[in-house]
Amino acid sequence: MVNNLLRLCLLIGMLTTIGCTQSKPYDAIATHPVTGTVHINGVPAQGALVRFWPQTEQPGVKYPISPVGKVDASGTYQLTSYEGPDGAPPGEYVVTITWPDPDWRPPGGGMPPPPPDRLLGKFGDPKKPVLEFTVVDGQNSVDPIVLDNAKILEGSKLPSASP
């Protein structure tokens, strides 16, 4: 009886291990680190989202991967395709920027829609990209994105410029 119980526990353990080592539930391809900076009207665009839209085929995936990076307080972003700052698959991309207003509060109750873009959608259309960039194997550094005299959503508070 104890011997059968031990065998059953070992079998369950083996099956659990095999189940846990199966491939991810999505197609994963190699990515490479991509970093850059964004400043808008003289300040780091903290909270802005930089998205890379693929322009070339990404062999090995069912659906195209559009890596995104969130700009930190210093104006720096690192792209993410799957998790963490893992970067982007090699290839050609067009780049867009949106800057959600974190202080926006919709009137009334219920589930609020996403916050409006401080940049009024001007830099968020992949058909009118901010720039084009080719990701290569290894470390990738994007030239600084500097948007001066950008029209900002009325009533939106912007971070202060560093002294």
Results as ranks from 00 to 15, higher is better:
residue 39 H to S: 13
residue 41 N to G: 10
residue 43 V to C: 01
residue 45 A to W: 02
residue 46 Q to P: 00
residue 48 A to M: 13
residue 49 L to R: 08
residue 50 V to C: 05
residue 52 F to I: 09
residue 54 P to N: 00
residue 54 P to Y: 02
residue 59 P to V: 10
residue 60 G to I: 08
residue 62 K to T: 14
residue 63 Y to T: 15
residue 63 Y to P: 00
residue 64 P to C: 06
residue 66 S to E: 06
residue 66 S to F: 02
residue 68 V to D: 01
residue 69 G to R: 09
residue 71 V to T: 11
residue 72 D to V: 08
residue 72 D to E: 12
residue 72 D to Y: 06
residue 78 Q to W: 02
residue 79 L to A: 07
residue 79 L to E: 02
residue 80 T to V: 03
residue 87 G to E: 06
residue 89 P to D: 00
residue 90 P to E: 14
residue 92 E to N: 13
residue 92 E to H: 11
residue 92 E to R: 11
residue 93 Y to N: 10
residue 95 V to Y: 04
residue 95 V to G: 01
residue 98 T to E: 12
residue 99 W to H: 09
residue 100 P to D: 04
residue 106 P to R: 14
residue 108 G to H: 10
residue 109 G to F: 11
residue 111 M to F: 14
residue 113 P to I: 00
residue 114 P to T: 09
residue 114 P to M: 11
residue 117 D to E: 12
residue 117 D to L: 11
residue 118 R to Q: 09
residue 121 G to P: 11
residue 121 G to H: 10
residue 123 F to M: 08
residue 123 F to K: 03
residue 124 G to S: 15
residue 128 K to W: 00
residue 129 P to R: 05
residue 130 V to T: 04
residue 131 L to G: 04
residue 133 F to N: 11
residue 133 F to A: 10
residue 134 T to M: 03
residue 134 T to I: 03
residue 135 V to Q: 05
residue 136 V to K: 15
residue 137 D to T: 14
residue 137 D to F: 00
residue 139 Q to E: 15
residue 142 V to C: 02
residue 144 P to A: 06
residue 144 P to T: 02
residue 146 V to A: 05
residue 147 L to K: 09
residue 149 N to Y: 08
residue 149 N to V: 06
residue 149 N to R: 14
residue 151 K to P: 01
residue 152 I to Y: 06
residue 154 E to R: 13
residue 154 E to N: 13
residue 155 G to S: 13
residue 155 G to C: 13
